[in-house]
């Protein structure tokens, strides 16, 4: 059986502690039930001044760094509601899993995680709490957010074409002589081949597979989500 990440690579844990200790001295690492947990107060800073603080807990699952750490607000300050992008367990939904490679690709540091998606999320919460809009916008909830992402990505609202593109992301391999999923009649090599090869590197296959399943279920009406709009 494979060891958990911090036993297999203890140097990574040491490195993570070291890299955040100056900027986030109030965040502490603990081992709890076989996972690493970081707890403490997270400051929203600008110009080296703290504008706000949140009590947070970050859990690194056994398959870290493959998995995205789970971020929770534990102070009970943020409502566990759709509009605040918190599930009922108090877990924050920082970004769409599809965007991981743009926001915090595998191999990025924990400090970068704190300074980018975590910082942006709680900065947004502070503004929303004061009646302002989310500063960088939001993805719609559930399958609608997934649909919007792929519609933007592929530049079409035609869900049949979106789904064809996604099948090409998931496929074990794609060949240049295949017809392009965009539907213009060209071969892949003369059309969206480079674009798809790049996406296959960016979006993990399991993430695309899961999203495709949601979109297909929503399209066929099998998915009983209240926001099933497709």
């Amino acid at each position: 059986m494979r060891k958990v990440w911090y036993k297999e690579n203890p140097a990574l844990l040491v490195e993570m502690k070291e890299e955040i200790k100056d900027d986030f001295p109030n965040l502490h690492f603990y081992e709890s039930n076989g996972v690493i947990v970081v707890e403490g107060s997270f400051p929203i800073r600008h110009d080296k001044k703290s504008l706000d603080r949140y009590s947070i807990k970050i859990t690194f699952l056994k398959d870290y760094p493959k998995s995205i750490p789970i971020v929770e607000e534990v102070g009970g300050r943020i409502p566990r509601t759709l509009d605040r992008h918190m599930n009922e367990k108090g877990e924050a939904c920082l970004f769409l899993p599809e965007q991981r490679s743009e926001i915090w690709p595998i191999g990025s540091t924990f400090l970068e995680f704190l300074n980018c998606p975590v910082h942006n999320f709680f900065l947004g919460q502070s503004l929303v709490e004061r009646g302002e809009a989310w500063p960088f916008g939001v993805w719609d909830h559930g399958v609608r957010g997934i649909r919007d992402y792929y519609v933007q990505l592929f530049g079409t609202e035609d869900m049949d074409i979106v789904i064809k593109f996604m099948l090409f992301i998931i496929a074990p391999k794609i060949k240049g002589h295949w017809p392009c999923p965009c539907g213009n009649g060209k071969r892949l090599r003369g059309c969206h081949f480079p674009f798809l090869l790049e996406l296959r590197d960016k979006i993990p296959r399991n993430v695309a597979q899961r999203s495709l399943q949601f979109l297909l279920e929503a399209k066929s009406g099998k998915r009983k989500l209240k926001d099933n709009l497709i």
Binding site: L51, H85, K89, P135, V138, H141
Partner: peptide
């Protein structure tokens, strides 16, 4: 000041919500 902080963010990110993880 929070708005100024937001305007200086280099890599903006948008939150989402995964219904599969506890919100129905």
């Amino acid at each position: 000041r929070l708005k100024v902080a937001a305007s200086s963010v280099v890599k903006p990110t948008k939150p989402w919500l995964d219904y599969e993880k506890g919100m129905v």
